[in-house]
Measured scan of single mutants.
Amino acid sequence: MAAGGDHGSPDSYRSPLASRYASPEMCFVFSDRYKFRTWRQLWLWLAEAEQTLGLPITDEQIQEMKSNLENIDFKMAAEEEKRLRHDVMAHVHTFGHCCPKAAGIIHLGATSCYVGDNTDLIILRNALDLLLPKLARVISRLADFAKERASLPTLGFTHFQPAQLTTVGKRCCLWIQDLCMDLQNLKRVRDDLRFRGVKGTTGTQASFLQLFEGDDHKVEQLDKMVTEKAGFKRAFIITGQTYTRKVDIEVLSVLASLGASVHKICTDIRLLANLKEMEEPFEKQQIGSSAMPYKRNPMRSERCCSLARHLMTLVMDPLQTASVQWFERTLDDSANRRICLAEAFLTADTILNTLQNISEGLVVYPKVIERRIRQELPFMATENIIMAMVKAGGSRQDCHEKIRVLSQQAASVVKQEGGDNDLIERIQVDAYFSPIHSQLDHLLDPSSFTGRASQQVQRFLEEEVYPLLKPYESVMKVKAELCL
């Protein structure tokens, strides 16, 4: 049975990233139509530049190519590739079939990587351009969430054990800070992308030097003109047959890092959902379990974690691919890159769409948070109580021993009897502590235990987050809708 299948058929496997999760716009960027249309555009740009620099290419040939950029006979191309065992030459023939007058000058002087690699770089750039505003929107939604809850005390956790208090907004800023680093890295790697350009079979530009009869300047002009037509500021000066596969490492490393950030955020949300302090959106008709109707599973956060793990592992592909590119190139890269580049971007696209949807509907339960604080705060307040007693004339050592005994009794009630923490009640009825009984409410005010959390939130948002989001103001209103 021949390899390949009808990918629109229910009898043929289709990647869930495309069929179930990723956005239509990201799927289109990695589609065959987008790819092969870009090949034709690159052939047109090459012909236009070659004509401008004096090669015998007519206006009629150029116009014929322009008129057929979208006229792609995919069936013919597939048949040609089956016959020739070469995808680029299959599309040269297919393009030439609908451009008979231009057929002889299509791909003039070029090698397969002229269309293959340059198209990949265009796709990487455009895919990054799709991700950047999506990530900015996630940051914006979380920034709104953090600002609104900047002063809401909550129990902090280290080692997932109760620690000092923080605020809900401050905790959210930990998430935002990681995503801001990801946004900066995505922008950097996007701006650092260079075009492969017009380089020939081993990167020496020998074929173009021959076409222009040894004119170095025209060869350099050709490279520059096509690079500018493709919208790049610069091209690699040095290439082998391909652009260095280190570029793929750079791009997928940034995406993998984004995956790590999203995994951490969504894990926190899942843990908070278990504590009943916070939940992701839950639709009115949504079913959490087929057997347990009360369940409210954090399905979206779980999906993000599941896909983020996949995204983090994909960076190993370009690392290994770059390491086995012998001399000017081997074909070890080809099949692998067809999979890992598309999957990385479709996965990143999915987790950003999902995280935006989550961040637009996060639900906080202040009463649950308050109750958990009441359970733990008495123990945390013991040092403040000791200091207040010393100020009232008591002995630190005597007070410490009193607190120690009462704390152990209260802990026994919590752990052995399943009761509430009654340390404060014990202190309130103990005559030894009568000098500070009137101060206990103040000493137990949760806001006095959150330090500068709310001020940190305000400063972080104003100095770091809002300036970073400013270039994306025009796209901030787009909502994230999930079908599944």
Score class of each variant (00 low, 15 high):
Arg338Ser: 00
Asp59Thr: 14
Ala453His: 05
Tyr432Glu: 13
Thr158Ala: 03
Tyr243Ser: 14
Tyr432Thr: 06
Ala291Ser: 06
Leu468Trp: 13
Ser438Leu: 13
Gln456Thr: 08
Arg137Glu: 06
Leu469Pro: 08
Pro467Cys: 11
Pro10Gly: 13
Arg37Ile: 14
Gly169His: 02
Ala256Thr: 06
Thr38Asn: 12
Lys415Ile: 11
Leu307His: 13
Ser301Asn: 00
Gln221Pro: 03
Ser67Trp: 12
Ile237Thr: 10
Leu341Ala: 08
Phe327Ile: 11
Asn357Arg: 10
Leu108Pro: 03
Ser474Glu: 15
Gln241Pro: 00
Lys147Leu: 08
Pro24Ser: 11
Asp216Glu: 15
Gly169Met: 01
Asp248Phe: 07
Asp215Lys: 14
Thr119Trp: 11
Val29Arg: 05
Lys82Glu: 08
Glu70Asp: 02
Gly197Pro: 02
Pro298Ile: 00
Ile72Tyr: 11
Ile436Ala: 04
Lys246His: 04
Gln61Val: 15
Ala348Cys: 15
Ala260Glu: 14
Thr227Glu: 14
Arg452Pro: 02
Ala90Val: 09
Ser31Gln: 05
Asp117Gly: 06
Tyr466Asp: 13
Ile424Tyr: 14
Asp11Tyr: 05
Gln397Trp: 00
His310Leu: 11
Leu152Ala: 00
Asp332Val: 00
Ser447Ala: 11
Met389Ile: 06
Glu279Gln: 11
Ser334Asn: 12
Leu130Phe: 02
Leu311Tyr: 09
Asn185His: 09
Met26Ser: 04
Lys224Cys: 10
Tyr472Glu: 15
Cys113Ala: 05
Asp398Leu: 11
Ile358Phe: 07
Gln51Asn: 07
Ala431Phe: 03
Thr242Ile: 09
Asn274Ser: 12
Met299Cys: 09
Ala480Val: 15
Ala150Gln: 11
Gln221Ser: 10
Pro435Ala: 09
His159Lys: 01
Ile403Met: 12
Tyr365Trp: 12
Asn384Glu: 11
Phe433Gln: 03
Thr201Asp: 10
Asp333Gly: 01
Val29Leu: 06
Glu425Pro: 08
Ala256Val: 05
Cys98Leu: 09
Gln184Glu: 15
Met89His: 15
Lys477Gln: 10
Glu277Ile: 03
Gln61Leu: 03
Ala78Asp: 05
Gly169Trp: 02
Ser447Tyr: 14
Leu142Phe: 11
Lys415Ala: 06
Arg83Leu: 10
Thr382Cys: 10
Gly197Glu: 02
Met65Val: 07
Arg329Glu: 00
Pro56His: 11
Val413Ile: 12
Glu481Ala: 14
Gln184Val: 08
Pro153Thr: 09
Ser448Glu: 10
Arg337Asp: 03
Met181Gly: 03
Thr204Asp: 10
Phe379Glu: 03
Lys470Gln: 14
Arg33Gln: 13
Val262His: 04
Ser207Pro: 14
Val262Ile: 11
Leu406Tyr: 14
Tyr13Glu: 14
His217Phe: 15
Arg338Ala: 01
Thr347Ile: 08
Arg171Ile: 00
Lys264Ser: 07
Ser289Trp: 06
Ala18Lys: 10
Leu444Lys: 03
Glu370Lys: 02
Pro10Phe: 07
Gly451Arg: 02
Asn353Tyr: 06
Gly231Phe: 03
His86Tyr: 00
His217Lys: 09
Ala411Met: 06
Leu121Cys: 14
Lys170Met: 10
Met299Ser: 11
Gly8Ile: 10
Ala22Thr: 10
Asp192Asn: 11
Ser290Phe: 03
Phe74Gln: 06
Ala342Gly: 11
Asp422Thr: 05
Thr313Gln: 09
Lys134Val: 11
Arg40Phe: 03
Thr350Glu: 09
Gln164Met: 11
Ser447Trp: 14
Asp59Gln: 06
Gly5Ile: 08
Gln456Ile: 08
Pro378Tyr: 04
Ser290Pro: 04
Gln456Trp: 04
Leu130Asp: 14
Arg188Tyr: 09
Asp349Glu: 08
Ile358Met: 14
Leu423Pro: 05
Asp11Ser: 04
Ile249Gln: 10
Gln184His: 13
Glu464Ser: 10
Cys483Phe: 10
Val189Tyr: 14
Ile105Lys: 09
Pro162Arg: 03
Trp326Pro: 00
Lys229His: 14
Ser289Cys: 00
Pro446Lys: 03
Met476Ile: 12
Met76Trp: 11
Leu319Glu: 03
His97Asp: 07
Val254Pro: 10
Pro446Glu: 02
Ala103Arg: 12
Lys218Val: 05
Asp32Tyr: 09
Glu463Thr: 12
Ser448Arg: 12
Leu469Gly: 04
Gln416Lys: 10
Arg309Cys: 08
Asp191Val: 04
Thr119Tyr: 09
Arg37Pro: 00
Leu352Val: 09
Tyr13Asn: 14
Ile176Met: 12
Ser306Gly: 09
Leu346Ile: 15
Asp6Tyr: 01
Leu319Thr: 03
Ile424Asp: 08
Met225Ala: 08
Tyr21Met: 08
